[in-house]
Simulated assay, not measured.
Amino acid sequence: MAAETPLLTGFACRDGRESLVFGERADGTMAHISEVTSGLECNCVCPGCGTRLVARKGNKQDHHFGHHGVEDGRPCQAGPETALHKFAKEVLARRLELELPPLVDGAGPGKWVGYPGGTYGFDAALLENRLGEIVPDVIVRKGERHLLVEFLVTHACDEAKIARIVAMDMAAIEIDLSGLPRDTSRPDLEEAILATAPRKWLHNPKLREAQAERERRGGERDLVLARAATPLRRAYVAACAEVRAMRTSCLAYDRIVGRHLAHAVGIEVPGIGCFTVPPRDWQALILADAVDIAASGGKGLITTAGALWKIRQRGWLRRRFSGLTEAEAAAVRVDGTPFDHPANAVATWATTLSRLGILLPAGAGDRWIVWQLTAGQMRGPQTSKRL
């Protein structure tokens, strides 16, 4: 059996041929195949070409309309799509309501909500009314405002048409009917068009205006942030110069030297100004216990959280810099100043030791262990007692 395509008005019959399930009555209304009698007594014509239709409601094929007098009864090319548009227009004109998707810009508590989503009432509906260079499937009107409604049956609205809609700055949505089962009843089809089928905004002037306002406010916020960052950047640069000039005072450094790993500490990484001691001290503090454990045959584990806990316990973090937001940090870095948060400074240093063959990654970027081959080379006399 040929694969069946779940089209709304042009289903595939059991033999794979496209079929028509809507015909047009003499009064211009649309008739579903389930609503008419068999044969020519259906009194319907093709919505696309006007050919008289015959209702085929036997037991061998899915019920459908055929073109009377046409070999094998195949529908014309325009029939199924035209039927869909006329049926949608008929439904919208009669009900004059449509479920609209939420109109939202951004995320989180500060997001802009222009419309929360829900059923919206209209005054009128127009079918295939030309607007400039485009012919929307359906136009619904509320007062002086218009909403273009596009239906996705086999192909989504293309980029060229969307670009024209955007250039016209008119609100438009697309309703996706491509996933409907081919045996969808008329009532379910109506509800799909009006409410249940997936739908999204193709364009909305309010959303464009909200995005422009967000960008404007963002630009103003960035300007304020940049001005505030200037003294912050100067203070950070001064802090970096201060820690570079400090002498080592951490006894853990002596233990590192005793393990022949002096080259593993004192590595300058972005963020050193966030600490109140030079890199040699806080790096030795983190590494000393791990290498001692590894040298004795244990698992010398280093984690970002554990390292920062040790550093905080000794009061080695500058509050002014360690609590900056990412936006503030980016403003400090804007001229190339090598700023980073303390956690990232620790991770960058540990990653450097991984490249040197001293540590091995042991987690999702925040855990490392002392490499056992290195640990075997670290056994030697301790030159100072442990902190």
Rank of each mutant, 00 (worst) to 15 (best):
V332C: 05
T276L: 14
E326C: 01
D254V: 12
P361M: 11
R255I: 12
A284W: 01
D289K: 04
A290F: 01
V334K: 00
A327K: 10
G315C: 08
Y253A: 06
W371P: 02
T348N: 08
A331I: 02
D340Y: 03
M378K: 09
T351W: 13
R333Y: 04
L287T: 09
D335H: 04
P279Y: 04
R314T: 05
D289M: 12
G363W: 11
L360P: 04
P270I: 11
E326L: 03
W371A: 07
Q382N: 13
G323C: 02
D254T: 10
G363P: 00
V346L: 02
W316D: 08
A331G: 07
A364C: 11
L324M: 05
R319W: 11
A327T: 04
M378G: 02
A245I: 06
I256C: 08
A375Q: 01
A375H: 01
R319H: 14
A307W: 01
A345K: 03
A262W: 01
L261Q: 11
W282M: 05
R319G: 13
G380M: 10
C274K: 05
A288M: 13
T304M: 07
A331C: 09
V277W: 05
T351K: 12
R320K: 02
G297M: 07
H263F: 11
Q372F: 09
A330C: 09
F339I: 07
H341R: 14
H260R: 15
H260S: 14
M378Q: 09
G298Y: 03
I293M: 14
G258L: 14
S322H: 04
A262I: 06
D340R: 01
A290E: 00
S296L: 12
T304P: 02
G380T: 15
L308A: 14
K310N: 15
A347L: 11
A347D: 15
R259S: 07
G297S: 11
L317I: 10
E328L: 01
L287Y: 09
L360W: 10
A307S: 15
G357M: 14
G323R: 00
V346Y: 04
A362E: 15
D254R: 13
P342A: 09
G271S: 04
P278F: 08
V277A: 08
G336Y: 00
D366P: 12
I286W: 03
D281F: 08
G323S: 06
M378C: 14
G266P: 00
V334E: 01
I311T: 08
C250F: 11
A295M: 05
R320G: 04
